[in-house]
Design a protein around this nucleic acid. Sequence first.
DNA 1: AGAAGGACCAGTGGTCCGTA
DNA 2: AGAAGGACCAGTGGTCCGTA
Lengths: 259, 259
Amino acid sequence: VSGDAQHVALDALSQEDRTAQQDKEAAGSGGAWDMVAAGGRKVSMKKNCRRRTSKMGSMEDDEEDDSEGAEDDESGGGCGGRERQREHPFIVTEVGEVARGKKNGLDYLFHLYELCREFLIQVQNIARERGEKCPTKVTNQVFRYAKAAGANHINKPKMRHYVHCYALHCLDEAASNALRRAFKERRENVGAWRQACYMPLVAIAARHGWDIDAVFNSHSRLSIWYVPTKLRQLCHAERSNATAASSSVTGGGADHLPY
Amino acid sequence: VSGDAQHVALDALSQEDRTAQQDKEAAGSGGAWDMVAAGGRKVSMKKNCRRRTSKMGSMEDDEEDDSEGAEDDESGGGCGGRERQREHPFIVTEVGEVARGKKNGLDYLFHLYELCREFLIQVQNIARERGEKCPTKVTNQVFRYAKAAGANHINKPKMRHYVHCYALHCLDEAASNALRRAFKERRENVGAWRQACYMPLVAIAARHGWDIDAVFNSHSRLSIWYVPTKLRQLCHAERSNATAASSSVTGGGADHLPY
DNA sequence: AGAAGGACCAGTGGTCCGTA
DNA sequence: AGAAGGACCAGTGGTCCGTA
């Protein structure tokens, strides 16, 4: 059943759909991101690069050239039987700014979260059609689906790593944009920016009775993501601090939690 | 952290609390269930029977006699270093009817679901206090907590096996009661009654656009239980049948799903 | 040094099947 | 034959750490 699900999942998102979607994305962003110079050819390269597993073997009949594409722009020598290269590292960019050189910008990062959402919706539609359990979050199944659909640039560790940054982008876009600008000006690296995204979120949680799950669930695009462990811990620690402080101020009576 | 959670979980539900609660339960039901003749002594038997794992070792200091209790009423020879006996099998009983002999009735079965709900609430409170992930369903963690709190008569396979019977009890108590009476009169066994619980649920799902998840979630005591796979499959199969039938009746046009 | 992601791991949902 | 539940298993959430 599960293996069969894979095949239908693949069929549901045709090669053409993917090509069209990727082109649209590339155009919409000004063609920056990771496919700067590759244009339409990128897709056939991806296809040729795809590792042929036994699972994939049964659907190699669908279209086009099997000849290798022309030399592409990636360092590392293209597709000679190898995996796709890693994604370029992120740098801190302002809104709308295109990352130069072998880098990716933060608009691209946030775009990946929207892509995952679209893959989740596909998985949900298929599950509903078949009367199977329907995921409400971006699960392993969704990452597997995304990879099978050719989105090799999406992977779980990366998406989980930056979830809270995306959360700030969703919940307070102005604050998120300001933080990006400030960290870009100070020439901070991505890790520093990522760390800095935690504090504004803790402040938002504070305003919502420290319930970070409720904060995530209140936003439709954010609610499909698991609350990261570290963010949860920070909120808890800060709540304890805040409670201790306020109770000592009020005379050290019984500890009433602030809700 | 996880091992530590176990200990606090145990401490949170004291021996006295458990005793009091069990006595209350036994009294409330007329003392039937599985502790027919044991009364208060049952508790000390449970305690003595509990297997001493290394985890348990640190809390054996809390109270009372370590001498074996008087011979108890269970077949199998009591506590001589052995596990607690299996629970008596269920038989089909009417509402309020006490099962006679070495049997348990269906009121007791449904009561176990309420007990699990209470354990879930305990686990949720502890998780919230610690700022950890808070389960919304009866998970493995809850079953582990129940076992650690001495509720050896609660286990996952049993609870999952009868979930849909409990669902019918929650969603249409009159229909559930009628079904119990009918199957008792026909002297059917528990397995037959259990099978018969599926159909009324499928009918309820039909009235709610075939969305069995929504049906479960609409009821506060039921929403903490996972929808059983087989019920989900039955609903899906019946929806397909109903859709095919109605579309052939209406002339075989495009298949509009009924929502 | 900074970052991307393959791959591992403890504990999950699910239920089979050896047991009584 | 009918039923209770220990114990297993495939696939999960989570993230470390060998890699580039």
